[in-house]
Amino acid sequence: MLEYIKGFFELVKGLGITGKHLTKHAVTLQYPEEKDVMPERSRGVVVLLSDKEDGSLNCTSCLLCMKACPTAAIIIDAPRGEDKKKVLKKFELDFSLCCYCGLCEEACNFSALKLTGKYEYSTGNKDDLIWDVHKLQDVGRDVDYVDKRKKKVKKVAPKPTVSEATDEIKPTQSADKIETKPVEIKTDKIKTDKIETPQDKDEKPKTEGEA
């Protein structure tokens, strides 16, 4: 009998603790209406950064981020143009593969890309998760960043500039890009579970990028 009375008092004690919380405010947020402030270092959507002055992309097509990516989510195609300079023809990021590890941002020496605190990009279509260079640049327009580049790099004018991206030419350009999407190549990569490591071939990609 004594045990039952003791047990009853313990139950009341427990109820007292839960009862105390009745008077306190909720710790949760009503998400779509209220939003949490993401920390500065938050690793969400990857964006391409643009130059603060002329609005061109910071990317020099050095391919370091592509090589650092553990899931091969980044695909860059940058053939050499007539003047032997690399031209950024394609920069695609597949968010269905990206694991948000931030190694690409660490590998980049030119502040070309950054993981931001943005997170609302869910879609019903998996193909929409493959973002091309224009989308990556548009999303990253308002992102603040510390420029890691040296001053002398500034004279290089990378190809896809803001004017091109925002002009009426944009739809045709992106349409071209969609046609040339090498989806087959990507799936092959996943199947064989190998990551291309072009580091073996060219040991100093940094200097190439600066050229």
Binding site: K6, L11, K13, G14
Partner: peptide, 9 residues
Amino acid sequence: KRLLNGNPI
């Protein structure tokens, strides 16, 4: 601990 340890259930 106060919440659970003594709870008879």
